[in-house]
Each structure stands twice: as structure tokens, then as C-alpha cells.
Design a binder for these strands. Structure first.
Lengths: 226, 226
DNA sequence: GCGTGAATCCCATTTTCATGCTATTGCCGA
DNA sequence: TCGGCAATAGCATGAAAATGGGATTCACGC
């Protein structure tokens, strides 16, 4: 069965060209072509294609935001980003938003179809520099500077705390008394200069929050009593 | 300047072959060749190469564990994994442990040197299926099923709580009363079936902890009172 | 041998959290 | 228009957590 492809591209000429290319190639079908992100978000869920070829630069809502939302609405659809420039940061953000690969706009037709096929086949076409960035992002929680200040026992306890365990539970699993847990926690808080479990955990095990939609930044908390 | 390459490979024939290949190719230098992970861990830090070609299957400590530790000791060194089989899971773990790319053992010499060069140049040679896996791991915190159960206001509050804010602080930043925060929290806990801030946060914003070293799994907490 | 720090433990106090019950307002869909 | 739900708020209680002040043991380095 042919790979069902939808296109999101604001430039009419390119859009129609792609539409014809995809529609006219054996093994591919063009199910829809949208001129902007907004209409794509409305149309895509009604008839989810296998692959969406999405321009990043779009009037109004950009392609990255569009993917972020569309990937939720169409969980089985793959998104192939299309960019004019090989902008690492931008493409990287797109990948985090839910895209599965990307191609440059000047990619020759044959290569483009290959990329679509690769995407549909389970691959993720992208450039070497993007690949490196992506891989690098896999190991962030590794050497947190603040973690080195803690003893291994303390880390062990913090690890438990990060899972939501109460002091008594931590004590039970580590075969020590609750008071010992308290002591360690106190020592940790002192070293880390924090005053709560959540703060400690966030400081030592930075949360890799990969949100698709921008979230308003909440102002930082103030110092507490004293 | 030539790319300095070290080799970790238990098979003597392959090891010597690689050593000769790398040492005899212009632009490459072979700085060392180790027969096992243990000796590599001792030798590598003394003379950190640019790239380490590391076999995954090794007697004793495996190549993944070795990379996990060596990458900490030699932060500027790139690790290229070498596998006999295209085992996604295994290679993926290696990447999480700190490897930057991988090649199959039957890779022809020219391709191998290309991969080393690509790695050294900032790329990350890997197969399509690995790339896909890697990209997929980028967006876990996205469509958490439990998050959809919460109202936007509740999410907003939980977001604040995840940063370590106390109820009073949340109330102040959102311009509502502490009791209202309490109410929302109660409603959330009910929906999420949890009984603490940490549990709620973990459930809605799953922490992407990518450790290089395996950590003992702590048993799950029990139900609380009642 | 002595200081130091990690790990263990105990007791006590204050703060913050979790939870239960209740209640008002405003919006939206049946 | 009525019922339900989200958002707001108050009051109260008991459970955890945070903090403070000790104390002991043990390994390690100087």
C-alpha cells in the first residue's frame, strides 16, 4: 500500500510541486496539502496520513509548534521537517516537539522520496550534526556538579526520595532508622543549600523537561524564613 | 594533525588488523590497543585518544559498562562502538552510556575510517533504526496520559509544585489563596491516585533519568494509612 | 594517636503537607 | 434552566517533613 503523505508548505509553487511529485510517484499518495499550520491542524486529524512533510518556516504558527500539537492529535503519523537552512537548534527543537526527521528544502526529488520512505520504514533521516546533538542530549543527568558534593549514601537516599518514598520507607529499604534518614537529609540540604525534597531532587537530578508547548516561566521562590 | 585512535577488542586477530589499518592510514594514528575493558580503563586516562573504537562484546566487563566509566575519565574522547549484530537495544544503551556512534564489525575498512573521521568531526554514525529510537527518547514528558486528566489550572499548579514552591508561594504567584491551592492539590491527588507532591510530579512529568551506570531498583512504596 | 568526616542513632520543635468537609460563583452543555 | 464541573475559599486535624541539638562508631590520613 502506498505511503500516504500530507504536505504543509506556504509557498504555493513548492506546495503544488511537492504535491505532484508525491502524487505521481509509485508507492506514494498525497492525501492533502495545506498552506499553513492552522489549517493543517484542522485537516490532519480528520484523515491522518502516514507522513507529513512540514515546512518549518510558516506564516502565523510555525511548523515546530504545529508538529508539537499535531503529533498529539495524530499519534501514528510521522513528521518530516523541511527547512531552508541547516539550523541545528531549530531542527533539534522540531525533533523534541515530535518530528521524526528532516530534510533540506533543496533536497532533490528522489532523495526526498527516499527520506519519506525511510521515515515511514522506521528510520529518521537527519544530518550528522543533528545526530550528535541528539545523542548528547541523552545523557544530561550524568555529572551534575552538585551531585559530587554528596556521599554515595546520601545519593542513594536522595534517589529514593526522588521516587516519592517517605522517610520511613527509605529507612526500611535501606535497613536503617528513620532518624538516620533524617540526618542524611539534613546533611544533604545543607550541602545543596536547599530546604525541601523537591529542591534537592531538582538540583541533583535535573529534570529533562521536554515540553512541546512553551510554558510560562514561574518566578523563582524567595528565601524562606529568617 | 592525525586523529588519535585507541582500540578495545578481545579478538587478537581483529585487534591487530584494526591496529595496522588505523596506524597505516594517513590522518590516523593508533595510540593503543587493549584486549579487555579493564586494561582499557587503566590505560585510556593516561593518554586519552580522540576516538576509541570499542567492541561491545568483551570478556569480563562489557564494552557498554566500559564506555560508561571511561567517558567520565576521558571527557574529550569520542567512543565508537563496534558490534557484531545490529542489536538496537544494546547499541541504544551504549549511546546512553556515553558512546557517540557505532559501526558493525563487518564494516569495510574504508567505511570504518570514514566513521571514525565523522565521529571526530562532530557527527554520530549510526543506523536508521537507532536514530529513530534515540529521537523517540527525546520526548517522553509529552503526552502523559495522566496529564490529560488534569485541568489547565491544576497543571499550572503542579508545574509550580514541581519547581519546589511551597503552597504559599504558589498562591502568591498565581494570585489565589493558599486554601485554593490546597483544593487543587487535593483534586489532583485524587485524579492521579497519589498521596504526595513527588508522586504527582513524577506521574505527570516523568523524569528522564539517563544514568550511565545501572542503579539498583528500589521497591515501590506501599499504600499509606487506612 | 588524633582530627575529620561519613554513617549511624535519638529526642524535640516548628513548618508544611495531605486530607476531610463545606460552600460560593460562574460557565457550559443537556 | 438545571445539573455538573472548574475555580475559588475557609476551617480543622493528623501525618510528614524540616530543622536543631546532641552522641557514637569506624575508617582514613597526617
Amino acid at each position: 500500500m502506498a505511503i500516504r503523505v500530507a504536505i504543509v508548505e506556504d509557498d504555493r509553487g513548492i506546495r503544488e510541486g511537492l504535491s505532484i511529485l508525491v502524487g505521481g510517484s509509485p508507492g506514494f499518495t498525497c492525501t492533502a496539502a495545506y498552506a499553513n499550520a492552522e489549517s493543517a491542524l484542522i485537516g490532519l486529524p480528520k484523515n491522518p496520513p502516514d507522513v507529513v512533510l512540514m515546512d518549518i518556516q510558516l506564516p502565523g504558527m510555525d511548523g515546530i509548534t504545529c508538529v508539537a500539537q499535531a503529533s498529539v492529535l495524530c499519534p501514528n503519523t510521522m513528521f518530516l521537517m523541511s527547512t531552508s537552512f541547516d539550523n541545528d537548534e531549530e531542527v533539534f527543537n522540531a525533533l523534541r516537539a515530535g518530528a521524526n526527521g528532516y530534510v533540506l528544502k533543496n533536497t532533490p526529488p528522489v532523495k526526498l522520496l527516499q527520506a519519506i520512505a525511510e521515515l515511514h520504514g522506521g528510520g529518521s533521516p537527519m544530518s550528522a550534526s543533528i545526530a550528535r546533538k541528539v545523542i548528547g542530549s541523552l545523557r544530561p543527568a550524568q555529572a551534575t556538579p552538585s551531585a559530587s558534593e554528596l556521599s554515595s549514601r546520601e545519593l542513594e537516599i536522595l534517589e529514593a526520595l526522588s521516587k516519592g518514598m517517605r522517610y520511613q520507607e527509605v529507612a526500611d529499604t535501606l535497613f536503617i532508622s528513620v532518624d538516620t534518614v533524617r540526618s542524611h537529609v539534613r546533611a544533604m540540604y545543607g550541602k545543596l543549600q536547599v530546604h525541601s525534597r523537591t529542591d534537592a531532587v531538582n538540583k541533583v537530578f535535573p529534570r529533562v523537561i521536554l515540553r512541546s508547548l512553551p510554558i510560562v516561566d514561574t518566578p523563582r521562590r524567595s528565601i524562606r524564613r529568617k
